[in-house]
């Protein structure tokens, strides 16, 4: 069994906590509660190759200015999700900036972009071009919905499998 630290980053209200709640507890709530500081959750999973992984999921407080993040919260992570809200274009540009910073800080960590709120696609302000542009970070990308559960499990399992392959934290 291996344990991996996974962090979720992104600006306020993109749905980080909802994604974790959906994945860990299979619950979705329309109520919006702001995460203060950090909250830790856990999920035991078995990868397709049979390997057991315990994901220690750090739900980080949403901040518009990523520079305010305490390094100590991120220290030792094996992977991270950068979460953006498809209905808010500014969340995507902040996500790009977060991804760049993170790439510099943790070049060996696995990363994935999650463009959340796929259930509200008609309200999306994000274009496919914007999403393709994200590839410059060499990250994979999922369009997710914490409400319907679309791609949530897939995104978590994918990053867990990639983290498990690496022999570093």
């Amino acid at each position: 069994m291996i344990k991996k630290k996974l962090c979720l980053l992104g600006i306020l209200g993109v749905g980080k906590t909802s994604l974790i709640k959906k994945y860990v507890q299979n619950i979705f709530s329309e109520n919006y509660l702001v995460t203060v500081g950090v909250k830790v959750d856990k999920k035991n999973i078995v990868l397709p190759d049979g390997q057991e992984v315990v994901l220690i999921i750090w739900d980080m407080e949403g901040q518009d200015d990523f520079r305010n993040f305490a390094d100590s919260y991120l220290r030792g992570l094996s992977g991270y999700f950068v979460v953006a809200d498809g209905t808010r274009r500014e969340s995507l540009s902040t996500a790009k900036s977060i991804a760049l910073t993170m790439k510099n800080m943790f070049p060996n960590a696995e990363s994935t972009f999650l463009i959340n709120k796929a259930d509200l696609k008609e309200q999306w302000k994000t274009t496919e071009a914007d999403i393709i542009e994200l590839n410059f970070c060499n990250s994979s990308c999922y369009k997710t919905s914490a409400k319907t559960g679309e791609n949530v499990e897939e995104a978590f399992v994918d990053i867990a499998a990639r983290m498990a392959k690496k022999d570093h934290v």
């Binding site: 344990k3 630290k5 500081g37 950090v38 830790v40 959750d41 856990k42 315990v54 220690i56 750090w58 305490a70 100590s72 919260y73």
Partner: peptide, 18 residues
């Protein structure tokens, strides 16, 4: 769950220290 207590303990200590 000890797996959740341990990271939170680290967070609390870091928070106090900061």
């Amino acid at each position: 769950d000890s797996d959740m207590v341990a990271p939170m303990l680290s967070v609390i200590r870091d928070y106090i220290k900061d």
